[in-house]
Design a protein around this nucleic acid. Sequence first.
DNA 1: GTCACTCATCGTTGCGTTGC
DNA 2: GCAACGCAACGATGAGTGAC
Length: 503
Amino acid sequence: MVGSLKEFLAEYGNMLLTNVSRSQPLYSPDAEGAFEAAMRERLTKLLRTPFPKQAEAVLALTKGFKVRKHRGLFLTAEMGTGKTMMAISTSFLLCPPKSRTLIMCPGHLVQKWIREIKETIPDAHVVNLNRSGLGMLLELKSTKPTQREYYVLGKEQAKLHYARTSGAASFQHRDHITWTCPRCGSTLDSEPNVRSRRVRCERCKEPLWQADGNRFRRYSKAEYVKRHFPRGKAFNLFIADEVHQYKAGDTAQGQAFAIFCNAAKHTLCLTGTLMGGYSSGLFYLLWRTSPRTMSQIVDYHSIKAFSERYGVTEQVIKTSDKDGRASIGRSSRVTVRERPGISPQILTDLLLERSVFMRLEDVADNLPPFSEYVETVELPSDLAGEYGKFKDALEGEVKRALARGDRSLLGAMLQALLAYPDGARRGEKVLHPTTDDLIAEAPEIPCDVLPKEQRLIEIVQREKEAGRKVLVCLEHTGTRDLIPDLVERLEAAGLKTAALRAT
DNA sequence: GTCACTCATCGTTGCGTTGC
DNA sequence: GCAACGCAACGATGAGTGAC
């Protein structure tokens, strides 16, 4: 195990240096040639131009697809660097004027993608696929692109399918139920497990499940693309936003990602956190975006072998004496599990070749100055006293509950202790989540303006005098709802305030 | 019969989306 | 607005299977 970056570099630095110096980067900002010049010229046709560092990332990705003929590439960039802008610009350079690009993203980002495409690509035809029904896909199937077409789809809409119900015939007897195959009439041992699409009659292989017409009547868009669109030709480019959310092998989202990778000629994966600490998190993403390379390294069904090669595994051997009637024996059980940690070799073997990494610092020159600091404010003495008593009472109750194996108070304790300092004038009560018994109580503290609120008002007034607007984010906006109290005090101080709620 | 291995299942907390 | 659902991430356990 490696503790710090210093230790990491001490252990792996030489190996990394050797491998990196051996590899020839496909794109270098200091050695641009005719290809880059032509692409830079084409970038000027966009409605808004990428920042210089963003343009370099776009050129590198485009070159990876066009020159090195990669099928899938990764853009791993920190929040705020402009992943959306870079992906849209890449699609502009990569795809012909009559082309189709599919974007899968979290549902709340669909409108943002649509807006940014319209602001960036001249004469783009943008379609919101994140609606129920397959109408748009049916139309796509029978037509060819007439311009640069973009289809934006939320990951939930991509995966959601109809519900399944039993396809077996059931017979109610006086005191029990029996099931039979609807095709051959064979008697079944039990009701079929409809969660598995593989459940079939053992005798005639008839599927023993069917669509449940009494629930949501819908069809997964990914499944439709898989069944009705040509492999590798349905879309010129598939952009998977927040791709780390699709890393699992057999979840519905992971399957949808795999289907769209297969349906498109190229796949561009966007994320801020490509590696979540475990090597296995990259296994299916790499298999689905670079199947040819991965097939030379490890079998699709050998995620464990991949973890052993590129990650950290722990082997636990449990032994126990196990005498038989006429023998003396010892049995052991070995379990191998993956632990956090990734070999740097994964960078040189798989990632450097097909990734662009970008940090916020890289585009910092084009962004307004930014700094973060913590402003600490003391609790008023009466509130501090009550907070201490409340905390002690809660801790005692939680310890007693934990001794009984009841962990349900932990969340309540955390939220109550976080909320009381800001909501002191309302008091705080903690009830048991299941029994509703009163666990602990903190009194209301009458206070016109809390010190923290006063400090916030001073900061907002200072910004206002400098001609700047202020965005204030706070927690506890649901059951406790601290927003009205804060708005009231800001307005009393002569500040114009608007509450922006999620719904 | 033993062993190594895979697969399925359960339970937990928190978050977000969908359907009603 | 609420319930249901899906997902991540982890640990634990038991059933089933094939090689030896």
